[in-house]
Design a binder for these strands. Sequence first.
DNA 1: CATCTCAGTTCCTTTGAAGATACCGGTATC
DNA 2: GATACCGGTATCTTCAAAGGAACTGAGATG
Lengths: 129, 129
Amino acid sequence: MGKAYNVMAATCPSRTVLHRIGARWTVFVVNALEDGPRRFTELKAHIQGITPKVLTETLRTLEQDGLVTRTSYDEQPPRVDYELTGLGRSLLLPLRAVRQWAEEHVPDIEAARAAYGPEDASAGATVGP
Amino acid sequence: MGKAYNVMAATCPSRTVLHRIGARWTVFVVNALEDGPRRFTELKAHIQGITPKVLTETLRTLEQDGLVTRTSYDEQPPRVDYELTGLGRSLLLPLRAVRQWAEEHVPDIEAARAAYGPEDASAGATVGP
DNA sequence: CATCTCAGTTCCTTTGAAGATACCGGTATC
DNA sequence: GATACCGGTATCTTCAAAGGAACTGAGATG
């Protein structure tokens, strides 16, 4: 049998999956869980700028998709742990690479942006025959 | 020296980079260019469901960021090639992995979704002391 | 002359995800 | 009694990004 799923096909369910992975905060949350279980407040502090609403939403989605488990302990003050599942850890591998790429290539991208535009628009990069 | 950039910091420029990578169609376009140069119409046909407007926007952004080059040949009918730069090819590695992950784990995610909800909401996954 | 192709552009509408802000109940501590 | 901690909700607003549909120009083709 060949490939079962192909993201290039308009109606392939893998597109939905890709959409989830690409959601604004998924990369952050998954990466933040790389070293083991973390509490809600820890995550919120670690992922600077995320609002509790969005963090909750993201975690719920990840939980639904089987990437994260939520465990709440009956202590005082309350404690809730989030942890990557096996599936979540398998996604961590690509997403950590993406994160690292972003961190490593900031200068390259900034340089490219700065260099863009100066290029002559009329002659352009046009190649004549 | 330590890490220069950290996506977890609120104002880190790597966040902008991550945002670009995470844009709806970036994964598709970068993956579609994995085997070498492609023309606009080829890309449009290959990435099913993408509109010309969005494809243009995505390509322009990738070009600005130095991930893709655009070469237009003065032929008839017009020909324009898009190709990954070295930087673009370095991004292809993580993004191909993301794509593959999405294609491979559709069943896992569908299963997790189906299994979600049935779990008792009152007792929940709560762990008592 | 009519039609096709390529590589887009233009205009308008929509929408869904994200942001801001405020609030909640229970506990324990000052 | 006031305040702080924890893990969230609730509500409202916003807005960038995506979608849809039609259109362009210049030359090739029938």
